[in-house]
């Protein structure tokens, strides 16, 4: 077990190191100069040069790379070129929007998907099942930004139940949750459609297992057997998909954040790319990669705990 963990940990570190190098180098070839961007049309070339110097853009490459790495290990991500505040402050503020939004969307999607998937499974091969499956097909095919657009049109512009976007901060948790509701729904529905399908198929798998037949033989009804035994076992693949979806939602909300002008991580990185605020871009991308790699590691680790067969390198 210890060997397995150590090996996976080493591979995790190697991945992160490789990722950091890739990100750094890719951003180096990005055309566009942050200093020129900030000074605009009337600036003289020597003014731009003075700003480049001030921003520390003139140091040699390796020095900047290792400086960045060393800083990150102690939580220092540098100073944003454009905003002129520490990147860690920016990220800290944005995480307060992105993480709750992803969690909210995931909760919604789970609350919809699990019962819907279970109903479809228990009603398998009936018109109800077919109807639900048809709806989920539609959900999977829905571009979330288009759906978001329609939500705004109906609920903000038309009914005026929700504000059209923006984020008031967590001082008033009620208002904050309200502001995140439409974006969370827009993100959650397509995810819920996927999750419901996974839930249904995984339930059907377990329903055919030996112990389920035993449970039925002992006189439990299909519904009772489903609730007592199948549900728990069927949740394992569902949880795996949820893990994947959380990291997807964290970074994948860029377009939704734009539609609802939410100050989240996705929009931060999008704007930072346009402004060539590379300090921000590389740190946020690195952070997202770190989050995904770590979640994967934890998932593998948990599986290995549960199922020793998985400790071998080939899964």
């Amino acid at each position: 077990m210890a060997v397995f963990v150590l090996k996976r940990l080493a591979s995790l570190l190697a991945s992160l190191l490789f990722a950091s190098l890739a990100i750094f180098l890719v951003l180096e070839v990005l055309p566009g100069d942050p200093a020129a961007f900030m000074l605009g049309l009337n600036a003289a070339p020597d003014t731009v040069a003075a700003l480049r110097e001030q921003l520390g853009l003139t140091a040699p490459l390796p020095q900047r790379y290792f400086g960045w790495l060393a800083g990150m290990t102690v939580g220092d991500f540098g100073i944003s070129y454009t905003y002129r505040v520490p990147v860690s402050d920016l990220i800290g503020a944005r995480v307060q929007v992105s993480v709750p939004l992803a969690a909210y969307a995931l909760t919604l999607s789970t609350l919809i998907a699990i019962p819907v998937g279970a109903i479809a499974a228990s009603a398998r091969n009936t018109p109800l099942d077919a109807g639900i499956m048809g709806m989920t097909q539609l959900g999977v095919a829905l571009p979330n930004f288009w759906f978001a657009m329609l939500l705004v049109l109906v609920f903000s512009v038309g009914l005026r139940w929700f504000s059209a976007g923006g984020f008031p901060g967590w001082d008033d948790p009620f208002a904050a949750m309200r502001a995140l509701t439409l974006p969370a729904v827009a993100l959650a529905l397509p995810q819920a459609a996927i999750l419901a399908r996974v839930m249904r198929s995984s339930l059907l798998d377990t329903l055919d297992q030996e112990y389920m037949r035993t449970a039925r033989a002992k006189g439990l009804s299909q519904g009772q057997a489903l609730r007592r035994h199948a549900l728990r076992n069927a949740l394992i693949p569902v949880l795996t998909i949820m893990g994947l979806q959380f990291s997807f939602l964290l970074a994948g909300a860029i377009i939704i954040e734009n539609v609802f002008f939410l100050p989240g991580l996705g929009r931060l990185v999008f704007q930072a790319i346009s402004a060539r605020d590379l300090v921000v871009v590389r740190s946020v991308v690195m952070l997202l990669v770190f989050a995904v790699v770590t979640v994967n590691f934890l998932v593998d680790f948990t599986y290995a705990l549960v199922d020793p067969r998985l400790r071998r390198p080939v899964s």
Binding site: M149, V152, L153, S156, V157, R160, F162, S163, A164, G165, G166, N258, V259, F260, F261
Partner: peptide, 11 residues
Amino acid sequence: SAAFAAMMAED
């Protein structure tokens, strides 16, 4: 379009 929605919603 967010600007339009923000005006209409009086945000």
